[in-house]
């Protein structure tokens, strides 16, 4: 069964954010289904929809994002898509 998760990246805009984040995803064989991003007064926000096979991998993936978070001063969250459905759809 296909499960989808939302990766959100928030932080100060700088060179290499997208490249670093997507490298981690491709190294872990995660397919990106959709990307959208905005920059508001130097503040970078990117949201990606990714395809995950096994939800138990999310913790490992979150740990793999740690070095990127520390290096670029970003906050990266991964959450199953269902939580957004539950929050915003009746």
């Amino acid at each position: 069964m296909q499960r989808r998760a939302v990766v959100s990246v928030v932080g100060k805009d700088q060179i290499g954010i997208i490249s670093n984040v997507t490298t981690v995803l491709s190294d872990n064989k995660m397919n990106i289904l959709d990307i959208s991003q905005t920059i508001l007064q130097d503040f970078f926000t990117m949201i990606m929809l990714i395809d995950i096979k096994d939800p138990s991998n999310l913790e490992k993936l979150q740990n793999k994002f740690k070095p990127v978070e520390d290096e670029l001063g970003l906050k990266i969250n991964i959450q199953l898509e269902d939580v957004f459905q539950a929050m915003h759809r009746v």
């Binding site: 926000t45 949201i47 969250n77 957004f84 929050m87 759809r89």
Partner: peptide, 17 residues
């Protein structure tokens, strides 16, 4: 109905902020 960008941002703001 797909979840919008602003809706995702709203949820993240609720958890983080």
């Amino acid at each position: 109905m797909p979840i919008g960008f602003t809706e995702i941002q709203e949820t993240i703001r609720m958890v983080e902020m």
